[in-house]
């Protein structure tokens, strides 16, 4: 019951299939928001959505420790499972531990070859076979175009989903639903571009807006309303 609720209310659910009902197994996505709005939390929800369906996810954390990354999951789980039966919570936790692998890098040493080497260590020994990567902490605005092209190539070769987060600053913010200018020249690399925006003060909601989606799941301009505590769909 708990597990089903978490899947049903996950914002990623709308990106699961295209309009014809075909499951999207490959995608490179980007979630952009101002600092503190919930980029990492939404990446954690993307990871949870996959893990709870038995898919393995590698959470790549750049500039953060394993403990800190784990703490994100623990905090979000605490919120989304409050009031649930202890055994259901335990079962969800077990599923997460089983299907999650955290890989951390320093800010300076993240590259496709390094990531690929580490993924291969896991895959070739049949220790872990991810169908999704979430990559948190990479400075997309400053990142070399080549690095993102490399990541795109890796995503295609492995046939998986990769989601990135990126931070935008107030002075870079685009008007309305527009993507901040600093990401404009990189937009073509991604299949899906999402923006997290807080609702007006006092409303206590967050909007997840689709800026672009080449996979045909969601029409650009559509927005979803999320609960800022859990990052699950509002209501």
């Amino acid at each position: 019951m708990l597990k089903q609720n978490l899947i049903t209310n996950n914002p990623l659910r709308v990106f699961k299939t295209d309009t014809k009902g075909n499951e999207i197994l490959q995608r490179m996505g980007l979630v952009v928001s101002r600092p503190g709005v919930g980029k990492t939390a939404i990446l954690v929800q993307i990871a949870l959505y996959n893990m709870l369906q038995g898919k393995q996810v590698v959470h790549v954390s750049i500039g953060q420790s394993i403990d800190k990354t784990k703490a994100w999951y623990d905090d979000i789980l605490k919120d989304v499972t409050s009031g649930a039966k202890a055994e259901e919570v335990e079962s969800v936790k077990y599923e997460i531990i089983r299907n999650r692998m955290i890989i951390t890098f320093n800010n300076s040493n993240f590259s496709r070859p390094k990531l690929e080497e580490r993924l291969n260590d896991l895959i070739k020994q049949d220790i872990f076979r991810p169908s999704c990567l979430v990559i948190d902490g990479l400075d997309i605005a400053a990142a070399d175009h080549q690095l993102l092209d490399d990541m795109r190539a890796l995503q295609k070769e492995m046939g998986i989903n990769i989601w990135f987060s990126a931070v935008s600053h107030r002075d870079e913010a685009g008007k309305g639903d527009n993507l901040p200018a600093v990401f404009k020249d990189k937009a073509d690399i991604f299949d899906t571009l999402l923006m997290l925006q807080p609702a007006d003060a006092g409303e206590g909601k967050i909007f997840l807006k689709t800026v672009k989606d080449d996979t045909g799941c969601v029409e650009p301009g559509k927005a979803m309303c999320l609960d800022p505590t859990t990052m699950l769909v509002w209501g």
Binding site: I102, I103, N109, R118, D121, L122, K124, I127
Partner: peptide
């Protein structure tokens, strides 16, 4: 790293994560 992870896996270990520094 590959060998270390393999040795943990053989021991019913659940790898939580890896950190690379230099």
């Amino acid at each position: 790293q590959g060998g270390i992870m393999g040795s943990i896996n053989q021991r019913r270990g659940m790898i939580i994560g890896t950190t690379e520094e230099n």
